[in-house]
Amino acid sequence: MNRTLPFLLTFIVGFTIVIATFSPPLDRLAVDTAVFFSIIAVFAMILGGGNLVKINLVKITRRQRDWQFAIVTLVGFFFVLIIGLFKVGNPGGVTGQVDAPGTPFFDVYTYVFVPVGATMYSLLAFFIASASYRAFRAKNREATILLIAASIIMLGATPFGTMLTAWIPDSLDIFEVPNLHFFLMSSPNLAGQRAIMIGIALGVISYSLRVLLGVERSHIGKDGG
């Protein structure tokens, strides 16, 4: 019973959305179900926040390794939560837009969230350089194709690439680096992406059907409460 009712819920909700696509009178139900989904997703975010607090509190109380940094996480978390939920310093008050420019919440986004996020990603530029060294060694035919494609793509996106083949006459301009870049992106790359997308779609479609028909029930958990 503990697994049957959740499975029925999955079945009914999933097939309501599928059937609503083919049946306009049910369209409203599908729209409402999608809104219900976004509301529950917010509760999932709250659950994530609660879990973060729980884990960090345990870390602090048990004096686990690097427990001092758990305090930093909690201070950052509660600071942003308070200024965001209560719209502290928002010129529009509680009815104002939460991320309006000039509010402390906006400042946290601009001067903490964005710099750290962007720097974390830019840090990957250094690691990707060493990865390139390993990936771009022309060990065999496939690796050579990868190397040539990546080099043309990178060169084609820079002024240096344009300069390199600017001498080629117009009648042979297909061999200019920017044009080769465009060709690679719009033909073989498109074909490869499309093959991958079709493969993924087949996987998602079959997995969705397995879930809706109850063949796959791991998300419901084990019996016994």
Binding site: G48, G76, F113
Partner: peptide, 12 residues
């Protein structure tokens, strides 16, 4: 700090 701030940011 980023972990705490981003969790609260998306929650808010």
């Amino acid at each position: 700090l980023f972990v705490g701030v981003s969790a609260a940011y998306w929650m808010v």
